[in-house]
């Protein structure tokens, strides 16, 4: 009896360790520059392909991708491959792809996906890893595997330039004086998701050279659920919230919200939507939108023009 339990335990421990994926798998993968018909079963993978200039044959939840990720644009010709949790295997089989880009959610399906086409599982969201660095490594490796290394390097360079530009823009407005910046998304009028230091928006802020939160969230996606009331603890922080927020009309007029330190001192700004669980492209779009939001803050926008000129002169 007892031996039976040990066997079960052993099997369980082994099963835990058998999870591969992420960058390591991509590094070990051989180059397949001839792969043209590629299916993306996660939005992260679809985004990476599009950034490399490849239009995927099919994308899981393609319609929702167009609505929620939006950028980079998915051409209308790309099919929907079913849902991200349960992609349609029969459809995949009849599409006869050259390569399937999968995600760890689908690890259990791997043998069956492999019967259809070679599978690469990519995932930047692994515990105790810098998701932004992982996303960059994944993008580079994916470029190598698909024979598009020059494009990958060029795009990364372009994104780095973009980041530098954003950073400069912020510096020009005196962002160095900014206190800690926090990013949240509202669940409803009384609950918020707070992004921790392991979340993409916060990593984007850090890349912009801004002072931001240093505590990681428990979930691997980097979000913690909190009550709106608890935000009171942020005495001096700047707060960015991601749109859309349907109940803004109700929350923002309440006396409690009006009494929040960051509301009283006008250190709150809305950020236009961008995908928070994506790859290198999404990281940049997040940074772009958050920079725009920050520049609307009175704290930066009221910066006297003379100071701007002075900083510009010093930079040239």
């Amino acid at each position: 009896m007892r031996r039976g339990w040990y066997c079960v335990l052993l099997w369980w421990v082994l099963a835990c360790q058998a999870i591969a994926g992420g960058v390591d798998e991509l590094r070990a993968a051989p180059a397949m520059p001839t792969a043209k018909r590629i299916v993306a079963l996660s939005w992260e993978a679809a985004e990476n392909l599009l950034e490399l200039g490849i239009t995927p044959l099919a994308v899981a939840d393609a319609d929702d991708y167009r609505r929620w990720v939006a950028q980079p644009l998915l051409p209308a010709g790309a099919l929907s491959a079913g849902s991200r949790l349960e992609p349609n295997l029969e459809l995949l089989a009849s599409l006869k792809p050259d390569l399937i880009l999968s995600s760890p959610v689908l690890d259990a399906l791997r043998p069956r996906l492999q019967a259809i086409a070679p599978v690469l599982s990519i995932d930047a969201f692994r515990p105790n890893e810098d998701h932004a660095q992982a996303a960059e490594a994944i993008f580079r490796q994916l470029g190598r595997v698909l024979g598009r290394q020059p494009q990958a390097d060029a795009r990364l360079h372009q994104l780095a330039l973009g980041f530098a530009q954003l950073r400069q823009q912020l510096q020009a407005h005196g962002a160095r004086r900014l206190p800690r910046v926090q990013v949240i998304r509202f669940a409803n009028a009384s609950n918020v998701y707070v992004y921790g230091s392991n979340a993409m928006p916060v990593l984007a802020l850090r890349r912009l050279g801004l002072n931001t939160t240093g505590t990681a969230a428990a979930s691997v996606w980097g979000i913690n659920q909190q009550r709106v009331v608890d935000l009171v603890a942020w005495r001096d922080d700047v707060v960015l919230y991601q749109e859309p927020f349907a109940e803004a009309g109700r929350l923002f007029v309440s006396p409690l919200w009006q009494g929040m330190p960051f509301v009283r001192q006008q250190r709150l700004a809305a950020v236009a939507p961008a995908w928070s669980y994506g790859g290198v492209g999404s990281l940049y779009y997040l940074a772009q939108r958050m920079t725009a939001a920050l520049l609307r803050l009175p704290l930066l926008a009221d910066q006297p023009v003379a100071a701007n000129r002075a900083s510009r002169r010093s930079s040239t």
Partner: peptide, 22 residues
């Protein structure tokens, strides 16, 4: 309709948190 309905989850769990007297 996962993306639309996800903001209902908190409500569905029976949440008493209040932010005003509304």
């Amino acid at each position: 309709h996962d993306q639309y309905a996800s903001n209902l989850f908190v409500w569905g769990a029976g949440d008493l948190v209040q932010i005003d007297w509304q």
